[in-house]
C-alpha cells in the first residue's frame, strides 16, 4: 500500500483524512461520552445523510455540481445541530427526545430525496459505509480546516467545556454562558461528523467518536488521559482499518469499527486479568 500511497493522490487524501479524523473524532467524542450525549452523534449523522442525498439529488437533476454532497451534508448537519439544541430547550425535562426526533427526521428526508432521484449509484453506498477512494483534494482541504477549527476551539474553551460536562450547575454559577458553549460544542460535533463520513460512513461515524472513549475510560486516570488514550485507540483503528479495507476491498467503515470493538474487548479483558492478578498478589501478601 505504501507504494500506491505515494503514487495515487486519492489514497494519500484518504490516508491524511484518516489520520485527522482519528484525532478529532475521539477528541470531541470524550466530551460527548461524559456528557451522556453519545446518541446525538447518531442523530446528526442521519441528518448529514439527508444533506448528502440532497446534494446527490441536485447533481442528478441539474446535471451540474451546484453544491458537492460533502458541503450539503455539512450544511444539513449544522442545521440539525441547531434544531437539536432548540428541541432540548423545548423539552427540558426530556432532553433525549431531541435525538429520536432529529434522527427520524434525517432518515425520513433521506428516503424522500432518494425516492425523488429514483435511487443513486454506488456513491451513496460509499457515504453509508465509507470508502478508501472517496476523498477528493477539495474534501481534504475542507477537513483540514474543520480539524483546525475543532482543535483551536477545544484548546481555548477546554476548561469551560470540562466544567460544563462535569457539573452544569457549577458552570452556570461560575458565570459560564452554558447555552452558548453548548451550542458551539454541538456545532463542532456536526462539523466532525461531516468530516468523518467520507472515511467511516454515515452509519458508523458515531462509533468512531464513542468506541475509542469507551475503551480509554476503562484504563485512564483523569479526563486528559482519557482523551489521549482515546486518540491512540482511534488512530490505531483508523490506520489499520484503512489498510485492511484497502487490501480486502471492503469499505473501511466496517474494518475500523470492528477493530475498535476488538480493542475495546481486549482492554476490558486485560484490565480484568490485571485486577485478578493484583488481588491474588494482595491476598498472598496479607496471608
Amino acid at each position: 500500500m505504501l507504494m500506491n500511497l505515494l503514487e495515487y493522490e486519492f489514497l494519500r487524501n484518504t490516508f491524511f483524512t484518516g489520520i485527522i479524523i482519528g484525532i478529532i473524532a475521539p477528541l470531541l467524542g470524550a466530551f460527548i461520552v461524559v456528557r451522556r450525549l453519545s446518541l446525538i452523534a447518531d442523530a446528526l449523522s442521519h441528518v448529514t445523510l439527508a444533506g448528502i442525498a440532497f446534494g446527490l439529488l441536485l447533481e442528478k437533476k441539474t446535471g451540474a455540481m451546484l453544491i458537492t454532497p460533502f458541503y450539503s451534508g455539512l450544511g444539513f448537519s449544522i442545521i440539525g445541530s441547531v434544531i437539536v439544541e432548540r428541541l432540548r430547550r423545548v423539552y427540558t425535562a426530556f432532553q433525549e427526545l431531541a435525538i429520536p426526533i432529529i434522527l427520524s427526521g434525517g432518515v425520513g428526508l433521506s428516503v424522500i430525496f432518494i425516492s425523488i432521484a429514483n435511487g443513486f449509484n454506488t456513491d451513496l453506498y460509499n457515504y453509508l459505509f465509507g470508502s478508501v477512494s472517496a476523498v477528493s483534494r477539495q474534501d481534504l482541504y475542507s477537513i483540514i480546516i474543520i480539524a483546525v477549527i475543532v482543535c483551536v476551539v477545544i484548546f481555548f474553551l477546554y476548561k469551560e467545556l470540562f466544567l460544563l460536562s462535569f457539573d452544569e450547575e457549577q458552570a452556570v454559577v461560575t458565570g459560564i454562558h452554558a447555552k452558548r458553549i453548548h451550542f458551539i460544542f454541538i456545532v463542532l460535533t456536526a462539523l466532525v461528523i461531516a468530516a468523518s463520513i467520507r472515511i467511516v460512513g454515515v452509519l458508523l461515524v458515531s462509533a468512531l467518536m464513542t468506541l475509542p472513549v469507551a475503551a480509554s475510560i476503562r484504563i485512564a486516570k483523569g479526563f486528559k488521559q482519557t482523551i489521549i488514550y482515546a486518540i491512540i485507540y482511534g488512530e490505531t483503528a483508523v490506520i489499520l482499518g484503512l489498510v485492511s479495507g484497502y487490501y480486502l476491498e471492503i469499505p473501511p467503515g466496517g474494518t475500523i469499527v470492528m477493530l475498535l470493538i476488538l480493542l475495546l474487548i481486549a482492554t476490558i479483558v486485560t484490565k480484568k486479568v490485571i485486577a485478578k492478578i493484583n488481588s491474588r498478589k494482595h491476598r498472598l501478601k496479607t496471608g
Binding site: 476548561k159 470540562f162 462535569f166 461560575t174 459560564i176 486516570k221 482519557t226
Partner: peptide, 20 residues
C-alpha cells in the same frame, strides 16, 4: 466520570481565569 482530584479542583479557577 474520569476526572482526577486535581482536575476537579482546577475547575474552581474557571471564573477567576475567564475565557481563553
Amino acid at each position: 466520570f474520569p476526572a482526577t482530584v486535581e482536575e476537579v479542583v482546577t475547575m474552581g479557577l474557571t471564573s477567576k481565569l475567564g475565557y481563553f
